[in-house]
């Protein structure tokens, strides 16, 4: 199933109240927050209403919050070759 991956890049502070309402309808509360919505006409309408504030990609899979967090994690700087318990 296709989803829109929507990230809020610019805040809607100072913009008309309807803009904030659209962001609320999309479930976007803060900058750099990512939400997934199925591809549909009404979601497309929301996106087009606030397109200057968003980053939008079409993706096949919906990632959970923890999976997104794993993706965003930096490299640890080390890797485990062998654990002591395996010796």
């Amino acid at each position: 199933m296709a989803y829109f991956r929507i990230t809020l890049l610019r805040s809607a502070i100072g913009l008309p109240r309807r803009t904030n309402g659209v962001l609320q309808a999309l479930g976007l509360r803060r900058r750099m927050q990512t939400v997934y919505h199925p591809v549909s006409r009404d979601i497309a309408g929301f996106i087009l209403h606030v397109k200057e504030l968003l980053d939008v990609q079409e993706v096949e899979e919906k990632l959970s919050k923890s999976e997104l967090h794993e993706l965003r994690k930096p490299q640890p700087g080390y890797w485990v070759e062998k654990r002591t318990s395996e010796r």
Binding site: A2, V39, R41, I47, H49, V56
Partner: peptide, 18 residues
């Protein structure tokens, strides 16, 4: 973004007035 939305909708055979 407009192109992305257009491509995603047209894959499903949808479109919107806006």
């Amino acid at each position: 973004i407009v192109a992305t939305v257009d491509a995603a909708l047209s894959k499903k055979g949808l479109t919107t007035r806006s």
